[in-house]
Computed example of a mutant assay.
Amino acid sequence: MRLQRLIIGIQILLLLILLSSKGMAANCDSSPFIAPETDRNRLESGLTGKWVQSFDEKRLTIKDIDGNSWDYYAIEKKPENPQGLVLFLHGFPEFAHAWEQQLEYFGNTHHAVAIDLKGHHYSSSPDNIEEYDFIELAWETRALIRCLGYDTATIVGHDFGGALGWIMGMLHPDAVDGLVILSVPHPYLFGRALLDPNSDQAQRSRYMDYARGTTLSDQLNFSKIIFSDLSIFESGFYSGTRILRLMLENWVPTSRWKTMKHYYRAMPYPANEQDYPVKLTAFQKKIYSVKRPTLFLWGLSDPYFAPETLNGIEELVPDLELIIYPNGTHWLHHEAEDLNLRIDTFLSRILP
């Protein structure tokens, strides 16, 4: 029963409440990060374009709920007296530097940190699919917040990073100041839409069957669908040779595609009525409700997520600000010229 995963998440949350900040810090280690020599040489030579190299790079080592240790690569910028922690979580198939412009902007006032998600770029990439369960990843995100020296953070997430943000807002609201979610629907509304095989969302999500597969045919079909959408490169963020860094460091290693796609394999898919009933019980609604202020950004030209998944969002996210970009694609964090201003205004509202 996949709903049991959410119940386990609640049990984990209760366990976390019993843990002191000192105890969490003991399960964490922060150390300087040095990139592989080949990657470092390419970056310093300018062969992969001009990137901000002034960010502090760290390796954050935390322990998960089972006691396993995982390394997370992080880049950060912060002033002398930061106004709280803002944690940026990228999506598939990007890496921490996808938030380069946001770190430059918010690092002047806040402790701005972007991480490589597990299975991506320089972070740990275990082979076990269970290590990519979103409930476990949320526990690790909470541990990362503590490792950075905070009890709470504002989480800004895109795609898989946004899905992780939804879980944090549902199961770990005491570790969240607020959520900024880009280009990914609420898990319950996404599941409800998938239950109808004829829905717009079900048709858009057909690539997930290939993403979860392991045969050569699955891989070819997945690549055909994913690379038919090149809008990720149209904003100018990966202009010129900058695209080479994303490719050479995160796409070319074939093992990276395997672990990045483990997110699809770990998802509760296909959807079923038991996990996503048409009418939620009081207990289920408490689980699926987001308890923290949320800024939700959505592009109507996103080929992966249908507008129908927005129906009913207000009931599950009481403190919601929904921004619609009529021409926005899936890559709003690279396209929306007002993104930093909107996030800044949101932070001014939710932080003391």
Rank of each mutant, 00 (worst) to 15 (best):
Gln4Gly: 08
Gln11Phe: 10
Gln11Pro: 06
Gly23Pro: 05
Gly23Ser: 09
Cys28Pro: 11
Phe33Asn: 02
Glu37Met: 13
Thr38Met: 12
Asp39Asn: 07
Leu43Pro: 05
Thr48Ser: 08
Gln53His: 10
Arg59Cys: 09
Arg59Gln: 15
Ile62Gly: 03
Lys63Leu: 13
Ile65Val: 08
Lys78Met: 08
Pro82Lys: 10
Phe92Asp: 01
Phe92Asn: 08
Glu94Ala: 15
Gln101Ser: 06
Tyr105Gly: 04
Asn108Thr: 12
His110Asp: 10
His111Met: 10
His111Tyr: 13
Ala114Glu: 01
Asp116Asn: 01
Lys118Gly: 00
His121Lys: 07
Asp127Trp: 15
Glu140Asp: 11
Leu144His: 12
Val156Met: 02
Met168Lys: 01
Leu171Gly: 05
His172Phe: 15
Pro173Gln: 07
Val180Cys: 08
Ile181Val: 12
Ser183Ala: 12
Phe190Tyr: 14
Gly191Trp: 09
Leu194Ser: 08
Leu195Phe: 12
Asp200Glu: 13
Arg206Tyr: 11
Met208Ala: 07
Met208Gln: 10
Ile226Pro: 01
Leu230Ser: 14
Ser235Thr: 02
Thr254Phe: 09
Ala266Leu: 04
Glu273Cys: 10
Leu280Asp: 00
Ala282Phe: 01
Pro293Trp: 02
Ser301Ile: 05
Ala306Cys: 13
Thr309Arg: 01
Thr309Lys: 04
Leu322Ser: 13
Pro326Trp: 11
Asp338Asn: 09
Leu351Lys: 06
